[in-house]
Every structure is written in structure tokens, then in C-alpha cells.
């Protein structure tokens, strides 16, 4: 490399440096794009598909349209949903003896183990009565695994009470 070539290279380097500094300087005076989380929150979480929740309804006595068929639990790739049917109180038969208890068409327990959920939405898609939806919870933090095992029935009840 000749002496003049070296000088030319040095000037080229300085020029490209100045171009870069110009862009960085411009970014310094434009509007701040970041959101300072604890003091500000983002406004686009309504389209986010968080963990599932039961759609709360006032029409049924158990706050949900769920018929406890277990399709969601069956279709889940991670087996993170547990649904148990409620048992009706035993009826007294014709012979005066209590009959075998019948299964009701609503859940007694609807648990989601969010630790294993991959948010694929197979449960929401396959629900025959459309009793499930995605929540928009994004601010999760907890100290133990148990913090992410949700009782969705209690959550639906809480949702209705919050509304009232």
C-alpha cells in the first residue's frame, strides 16, 4: 500500500465514521421508541393470546358454558388441562335406596398447568360449546411452579364478581 493510498483510506474511514455519527445523533433527538415498563405499559396486548380461560357467563349457575366433556384435555399436546365432572347428589330410587350418583354436565374442577402450556390453541379450537378463550395476561411472575397452576373455575367466578 502506498503512502497516498493509506491517507485516502484514513479519510474514507473518518468519513464513514461521521456518517454513522450523524445517524446516531439524529436518533438521539427523535422520539423515544422504548416503553419504560413499570411506569408505562404497552397498549397492544388485547390481541395477544395468553393462557386460556373460561368465558364467564351469568346465564348458568356455575359461571361457565363448559359441559366438562374433556375434549380440550384430550386434544392438549402437553396434557396440561385437568377437567373433572361434578357429581350430582344421589337420588332416592323407587325402592327407597339411594341410586348410583349421576355425573352432571358441568365441571367441578378445571385446572390449567401453565408451566407446560405452549399456547397452541388446540383446546380453544376444539371446544364444542366455545367455552374457552385466550386471556390477555402477559405480566406473569412467580416464585414457585405452583403459582402457575390456575384454577380456571375460580377465575371465571372472580371475573363475574369483578364485573358486578
Amino acid at each position: 500500500m502506498t503512502f497516498f493510498e493509506e491517507i485516502r483510506q484514513a479519510f474514507k474511514g473518518i468519513y464513514s465514521l461521521l456518517v454513522g455519527l450523524n445517524i446516531t445523533g439524529k436518533a438521539l433527538v427523535t422520539k423515544v421508541e422504548t416503553v419504560h415498563y413499570p411506569r408505562q405499559t404497552v397498549d397492544n396486548i388485547d390481541t395477544y393470546h395468553g393462557h386460556i380461560e373460561l368465558i364467564p357467563t351469568d346465564t348458568t349457575p356455575h359461571f361457565t358454558k363448559c359441559i366438562a366433556c374433556g375434549t380440550c384435555a384430550h386434544n392438549c399436546p402437553a396434557q396440561c388441562i385437568t377437567v373433572t365432572k361434578a357429581e350430582l347428589p344421589p337420588e332416592i330410587g323407587e325402592d327407597g335406596k339411594p341410586q348410583k350418583p349421576k355425573k352432571a354436565k358441568y365441571p367441578e374442577l378445571f385446572k390449567l398447568d401453565y408451566n407446560h402450556c405452549s399456547l397452541c390453541g388446540q383446546c380453544v379450537e376444539n371446544c364444542p360449546v366455545s367455552a374457552l378463550r385466550f386471556s390477555t395476561d402477559v405480566y406473569h411472575a412467580g416464585f414457585s411452579r405452583e403459582d402457575f397452576e390456575y384454577d380456571l373455575l375460580a377465575r371465571a367466578k372472580q371475573n363475574i364478581e369483578d364485573k358486578e
Binding site: E33, T47, Y48, G121
Partner: peptide, 29 residues
């Protein structure tokens, strides 16, 4: 900065921001 804008867009039709699984056999969700 640009990626975030694209993510906001995709969040609208896929529901997630990184690990998308929005295609279904025979269509999209």
C-alpha cells in the same frame, strides 16, 4: 425497533410474538 413493529402486526393474526404456531392443516387460525 423495526422488528417490534412487524411483531405487533403478526401478533394480530397469530396471537403470539415469537414462537408462532398459527398455521393449521387446511388453513390458518
Amino acid at each position: 425497533d423495526d422488528r417490534e413493529r412487524a411483531q405487533d402486526l403478526l401478533q394480530r393474526i397469530t396471537g403470539s410474538r415469537l414462537t408462532y404456531s398459527s398455521f393449521r392443516i387446511g388453513g390458518v387460525i
